[in-house]
């Protein structure tokens, strides 16, 4: 079973995505989606090392909520800066040490930080587990580090132990 379905969660997500694209849940579409959901994870096995899984679905939902709030807040903040006749945001680079070392957790954190307009993930160094972040409107670097640690990293540490 594990050999045929190396990533059960990925298979289910692919099946759901397939049905979404087809806009129907007919038998033929389900069969085709199941085939896709079986073959793609098998093909992706050399790329994705460890098993894709969610340890705590509720925490993941909480993270989604946090990200949604932050996306709205950050969009409004950047919008207000851009509205001014001569936008002069105080940009800055931040280097911060992460406790998180799970590859999927790091990928999620990178996507969150880049998707939020106020910050962008630039580079991660595995040896020192340090990440370089660029911030659009930097006021206090320590405060930013604290925000990333408390809002995202602690949740991600629980989801991807």
């Amino acid at each position: 079973m594990t050999r045929l379905f190396p990533h059960p969660l990925l298979s289910v997500v692919l099946l759901v995505f397939w049905l979404m694209l087809q806009q129907s849940a007919g038998l033929g579409h389900i069969l085709m989606g199941a085939i896709v959901g079986t073959i793609v994870p098998l093909a992706a096995r050399p790329v994705i090392g460890e098993r894709v899984g969610l340890r705590r679905p509720l925490k993941a939902l909480q993270l989604l909520g946090v990200v949604l709030v932050d996306v709205i807040r950050s969009n409004v903040a950047v919008f207000l800066v851009l509205l001014s006749p001569r936008p002069k945001p105080t940009e800055g680079f931040i280097e911060m040490q992460l406790k998180l070392s799970h590859p999927l957790g790091l990928a999620t954190l990178a996507c969150i930080l880049t998707a939020v307009p106020g910050s962008a993930w630039l580079e991660y160094d595995q040896d020192r587990s340090t990440v370089l972040i660029h911030v659009f409107d930097l006021v206090d670097a320590d405060e930013w580090v604290e925000i990333v640690k408390t809002r995202y990293e602690s949740l991600l540490l629980e989801i991807f132990p």
Binding site: V71, N75, V78, F79, L82, L83, P87, P89, E91, T114, A115, V116, P117, G118, S119, A120, H134, F136
Partner: peptide, 24 residues
């Protein structure tokens, strides 16, 4: 606003934040 930011912001690292408004 994001695309105008692409035009008006002075450095590349600032501009990289602009298109994410359109995608988020």
């Amino acid at each position: 606003a994001g695309c105008f930011g692409l035009v008006r912001l002075p450095t590349f690292y600032l501009r990289i934040h602009a298109p994410t408004m359109g995608t988020s």
